[in-house]
């Protein structure tokens, strides 16, 4: 890749993510109040003392949003990482070994894909003891399969490449080929798998906690929304108890998606060429035609 300039979309995404990471890491030290303590009159609108107002239980919304960022992002990214690893291992083994192993693993993947996630997650979460570990298990169990499918199809297309044939001829073991030859060559696919898994994990976690599953005494973005809806905040007109948390979830999700789009653009030459030619044409006031443009780097 000769063009190392970071696309604007990715820049926007990275800046948003950076702000939230900062909030999650140093935020709780700088938070004005204890997020779970009763600090003032309940349901006060935003004011100078409480930048984002107070909840139905007299907690400071701003402090709660900061504390929620730490717990929710931690669980989201951890679950995303585990989901990607499980998916990559299953997908890579299925794709490389082929035959019966592939049939069995693909069947397992497809079965988990068609079973709807949320109802299964509810049953799992209801029976497991409430806590972060259980939440991770639930998220991974319901979300690993998509990654496995993506990785498998990518492995299938890499398997016939010359460098894999060379490794086979050299007499490398199959596991060596999977983990040392094939997986490192699909870093960008793994990265975008990780991003979509994290987006799923954050959303599913918020949804489960909103339902009342998990440890309701911990301050997370999901429990913030659960308590807001439990206290009938909306019917009392207290929009400020919901807005910050929802916006945070959406901003993190959008930022992740933006980074993932740019990953596609950086690593998929066809998309990169399309974007480059669209820019050139637009600059000259020409509507793009129907053919696929090819741009070569003359570096």
């Amino acid at each position: 890749m000769t063009n190392t300039k970071i696309p604007r979309k990715a820049m926007v995404g990275l800046v948003i993510l950076g702000v939230f990471f900062l909030m999650a890491i140093v935020g709780p030290l700088a938070a004005p109040y204890d997020p779970s303590a009763f600090v003032d009159v309940p349901l006060q609108p935003p004011s100078r003392a409480h930048l984002l107002g107070t909840t139905g239980q007299g907690q400071d919304v701003w402090s709660q949003t900061i504390a929620g960022a730490r717990t929710s992002l931690l669980v989201g990214f951890a679950a995303g990482l585990v989901m990607t690893s499980v998916g990559a291992i299953v997908g890579a083994i299925a794709g490389t070994f082929g035959g019966l192993v592939d049939d069995a693993l693909s069947l397992l993947t497809n079965v988990s894909l068609v079973i709807p996630g949320l109802p299964l997650a509810v049953v799992l979460a209801a029976y497991l003891p409430a806590g972060t570990k259980a939440l991770l298990v639930v998220l991974v169990a319901t979300g690993w399969a998509w990654n496995a499918r993506v990785v498998r199809s990518q492995v299938l297309s890499l398997r016939n490449k010359d460098f894999v044939a060379a490794a086979i001829v050299t007499g490398e073991s199959r596991l060596h080929i999977v983990f040392r030859e094939i997986l490192p060559n699909m870093t960008s696919v793994l990265a975008s798998c990780f991003i979509s898994a994290t987006v799923y994990a954050i959303g599913a976690q918020v949804g489960l906690e909103f339902l009342g599953l998990g440890d309701m005494s911990v301050v997370t973005w999901g429990t913030n929304l659960y308590w807001a809806s439990n206290d009938a905040a909306l019917l009392l007109g207290a929009w400020w108890t919901l807005l910050p948390t929802g916006l945070s979830v959406a901003l993190v999700g959008t930022a992740l998606v933006l980074v993932s789009f740019s990953l596609d653009e950086i690593t998929n030459p066809r998309l990169r060429a399309a974007a480059a030619s669209a820019r050139v044409l637009a600059a000259r006031g020409i509507r793009p035609g129907a053919s696929t443009p090819v741009v070569r780097d003359h570096a």
Binding site: G203, F210, L225, L234, W239, L242, V249, G253, T254
Partner: peptide, 13 residues
């Protein structure tokens, strides 16, 4: 990127 139910709450509001 918003949770479905959050959009629902905002529309409700």
């Amino acid at each position: 990127a918003f949770p479905y139910f959050w959009l629902a709450m905002m529309l409700l509001y």
